[in-house]
Amino acid sequence: MITVQVEGLAKTFFDEARGAIHAVDGVSFECRAGTIFGLLGANGAGKTTTLRMLATILRPTAGRARVMGHDVVAEPEVVRRSLGFYSASTALYPRLTARETLEFFARVNRYPRERVGARVDELVERFGIDRFESVRVEKLSSGMKQKVSIARTVVHDPPVLVFDEPTVGLDVINALEMQDVIRALRAEGKTIIFSTHVMSEAEKLCDTIVIIHGGRLLASGSLEEHRRATGKHYLEDIFVQYVREGG
C-alpha cells in the first residue's frame, strides 16, 4: 500500500545576499507501508527540507505531496495527524513530566480520548519510561529524553513516521537502540521515512535508499539495485559515484 506520494516537490528560499536558493528541486518518490525508506545525502543536500515539507512545516514552492492520500497543502492538519515526526529540532517541552508529555501529544493529535491512558501506559512500559515517568523532561538524561521523544512520536499511532537524522548526537548504545525501535515499527506495518548521512545506518535499515544531492534526487532503489546499477559494493562508494555523475 502506497502511503506517501511525492511528485516534483520543490522548495526555494530567498536570501537578501544570495538571492533564490533551490533547496529541493523537483524530487519525486513513493513510500509503502511496512518499509523503511531512506533519504541519504550529505549535509545541506535537501533531506531535512523535503521531510519538513512532508510534515507541513514548510509549504512546497512547486510539486505536490500526499500522506495517506491527504495533500500536505490542502489538508495540513490531517497530514500532521497521520504523521509522527522526530528530529533534533523538535525538542520536548522541558517543564512537562514524561507521562504528561505523552498524554499531551496523544490528546492534541486526536488519539481517542478514552484510550489515551491505556496507550500511554503501553508506551511507558514498552520504552522503559516507568522509572522516570513523573520526572520533568528538563531533568532527564539524553538517553531518557530520546525514549520519551520516540514515544511521543508514535503515541497517536500514526501510519507514517518520519525520522530526520535520529541518531545524531547519540552514543553507540543509544543509536543501536534507536535502530531496533525503527525495525520494530516497520514490523508493525508503519511506513518509516528515515534520513541520514551515515552510510552504515542506511545499509542496515533501509528497504529503499534514495540518494539526494544539491536538492535533486540522483537515484532510488534497494541496496542490491544500487549495487547492480553502479557495480560498487559499499554504499559509501555507490553514493560517491552517484554524486560525481550527478554533479
Binding site: 512545516i57 504523521l83 533534533a88 529540532s89 522541558p94
Partner: peptide, 14 residues
C-alpha cells in the same frame, strides 16, 4: 530557544 517551536508546529492543531 528551547527548540520546541517546531514541535508545536507539527502538532495536529491548526
Amino acid at each position: 530557544e528551547r527548540s520546541t517551536w517546531e514541535t508545536t508546529l507539527i502538532l495536529a492543531a491548526s
